[in-house]
Computed example of a mutant assay.
Amino acid sequence: MIDPNTIFNIKTEQAFTLKALEVFKFQFENNRVYRSFCDLLYKTPSDVKTLRDIPFLPIQFFKSHTVLSSKDTIKTTFTSSGTTGENTSKHHVTNLKIYEDSFNLGFSHFYGNIEDYVVLALLPSYLEREGSSLIYMVNALIKQSKHPESGFYLNNLSELKSTLTALDSEGKKTLLIGVSFALLDLVETYKFHLKNTIIMETGGMKGRRKELIRDELHSILKDGFGVNTIHSEYGMTELLSQAYSKGNGVFNCPNWMRILTRDTEDPLTIQNTGKTGGLNIIDLANINSCAFIATQDLGSLNADGSFEIIGRFDHSDIRGCNLMVL
């Protein structure tokens, strides 16, 4: 077994690489689905010397297989959203503390102490179903904020408007985290001039609206809320970590998460920085499932490790926690 604390204590690139290679060896030996995938590619730990050598499991496997590297009891199963009859992703979690440590440490790394914020959540499509990892995370952040005003909002936009306006005028630091279509509904109904509020979108139109490119969405939201920048959260059912953008669609990862891009024509080839490709994610918090995932998102990686989302592969289903399609 690998001590999860060693994952969250990573400080350097060398330490990340060493831990990622250790996790790869562990999952090769303990994850039946991932082992079968590696065997098909003729990849063993002796063949893997760098991050580029690691096989990345296509994210679709979370829909068709039980992806586990642990024999411990499953504590909860996070599921992706989907239309009736659609096969959804299932992320079986045997240790919820790892997820909690990941989102708590990730948030504090980028935004500081959660107790400094009133947390308001406008996530109707997620609240209306069970199994959302995003709801689990935001619910925990709301409780940890310890502000009586913190909470979820569903269809009560007028109450949210009053609360948001009052908090901002009182100078209280406020975080409004919302799914894209609901934030658009809010600014189409009310106009704001916020000075002490962070607006964070989690992506996703959920079939309620036509997809918008990021620049268009953010322009509408900036104008509607009266803010200079729109923040974004990048996460998904199959991950236990999140990346954050504080504006301009440039995301940064916590120390235990990395992005690589793969060639769109040759998925086994990892590209150099600056080129648009499929996003491969290393999320070491996924120690008990699979830490190496080939997503259906398209993006580019910058030299400093930050990344941008460009869109999605054609014919791939639109998932709730992903950003806009071009």
Rank of each mutant, 00 (worst) to 15 (best):
R32Y: 07
F61Q: 05
L157W: 06
A291G: 12
Q296A: 15
S46Y: 09
T77N: 09
V93G: 00
E201W: 07
V93M: 08
T295D: 09
E265Y: 09
F152V: 03
N248K: 14
K63A: 06
R208Q: 14
D168K: 15
W256F: 12
G85A: 11
K146D: 07
G274V: 11
V250S: 01
T12D: 10
R208W: 07
D266T: 15
K206W: 11
T66L: 12
C38G: 02
S102D: 08
I54D: 01
F78P: 00
F103S: 01
I220R: 15
K90G: 00
Y126Q: 08
K43Y: 06
G311T: 12
M137H: 03
T44M: 13
W256K: 07
T88I: 06
I293E: 01
N95L: 10
K210P: 02
K97P: 00
I282A: 02
T237E: 10
G151F: 02
N139L: 11
G299S: 13
F103K: 03
I199D: 00
L194P: 00
M324G: 09
V118E: 03
V118R: 04
T84P: 02
R35I: 02
V138W: 05
T264N: 15
L18A: 11
Q14A: 08
N302A: 09
I177W: 01
A303C: 13
V138L: 10
L96W: 13
S169T: 13
L96I: 07
A182K: 07
S150F: 02
L68P: 00
N196C: 11
F26T: 04
E159G: 11
